[in-house]
Amino acid sequence: MEKKKNILYISERIWRLGLFVLGMMTVMFAFAFFGAIRGKSPIWLAVFSGVAELAYSLTGWFWIIKPYRNSEKIIERFLEGYLISETDGEKAAMLTPYTAEQIKYTEKFLHSPKLMDLNKRQAQYLALQNQINPHFLYNTLESIRGEALIAGLDGVADMTEALAKFFRYTITKVENLVSVEEELDNCETYFGIQKYRFGDRLNLHIEYDPAEHEKIMNCRIPKLTLQPILENSIIHGTELKLGAGNLYIRFACTQERLIICVSDDGVGMDEETLAALNRKLGRANDSFGSSEEEKGGIALVNVNNRIHLIFGDEYGIHVYSVPDRGTDVEITIPLTESDREAKNRSVLK
């Protein structure tokens, strides 16, 4: 237990005791300095006292205070989720061996296959558990659809069928990655439901190069990437404008990336709101579990964080907007047709 004492704590106490010595040295320097001026003491004594005081101060600064502050910063970064590199370890020279050992153990545990497997099992259990309750929902919707057909309410029956299909995809389909084609099909189902509310006031356009159709439709993206953003475009964009509104989902390919742009010609947002939203999106894996709502920020941050977790921080979302002209939400992901090509496959179920 004695070996596990906080060396930095002891060093700091030594420095505090040394403050008394520093005070005495300051008094000695003052007496020697004024004595040398008056010719009552040799000049070398004043010089020696001043050099000794300066050396003591610099030693305390570089040996204790600076390493102490470095250690604090490194521990703060570790608590924020950053790993401690060898360079950081050298800077934190006063970090105790026991503390360093505990941090290394924590790092090892956080990245261990055992923890990953535990998280997967928990996610799979929750997914299976959540599949039980929707059956009641599906059966109820099917009953409503049947009653609507008997009563000749074809519109209600079609809307109920679309709602059941939407929930089946959203709740039951537990894969983390789906094809663009599946995601688009869900978007069209969702848009069909919204059409019952908005009628001809709302229009959806899907645009891509026909020559790249197969490559785009087979690309793998996180499930529920497009629909939440499309929903934001309706709620925070076209719904708030007068007259008809248009929504666009555009696809473009580079050699290694798929770029998706979900656009609307709605009310847009001002520069300050736009800048704050993009700053929030630029902070990787930030705002998990946040309840803060701003211009659809929750859905955007959620989708952006999932893209970061699966594909890496070099991919994600950026927003462009002009007041009274509309908003473009640009999504960048790697162009891949296999889940195995995802950078962080361990987060997939």
Rank of each mutant, 00 (worst) to 15 (best):
N6W: 11
N6L: 13
L8P: 01
S11Y: 12
M24R: 09
V27L: 15
K40D: 11
Y56E: 02
T59G: 08
N70L: 12
I74E: 04
I84V: 15
G89R: 07
A93T: 10
L95K: 09
Y98A: 14
Q102I: 10
K114W: 05
L115Q: 02
L115A: 02
K120E: 05
A127I: 14
A127M: 11
L128T: 15
F136T: 03
L141M: 12
L141E: 01
R145N: 02
L149C: 03
A157L: 13
M159Y: 04
L163R: 13
I171N: 01
S179T: 15
E182T: 08
L184C: 02
G192V: 08
I193H: 01
Y196P: 06
E207H: 06
P210Y: 02
H236S: 00
K241F: 07
G243N: 06
I249S: 02
A252C: 15
D265S: 01
D265V: 04
E272W: 01
L274A: 04
L281M: 08
L281T: 03
F288L: 11
F288D: 05
S291N: 15
S291E: 14
V301N: 14
V303E: 06
N305L: 04
I310R: 02
D313L: 00
E330S: 05
A342R: 00
S346T: 01
V347W: 13
L348R: 03
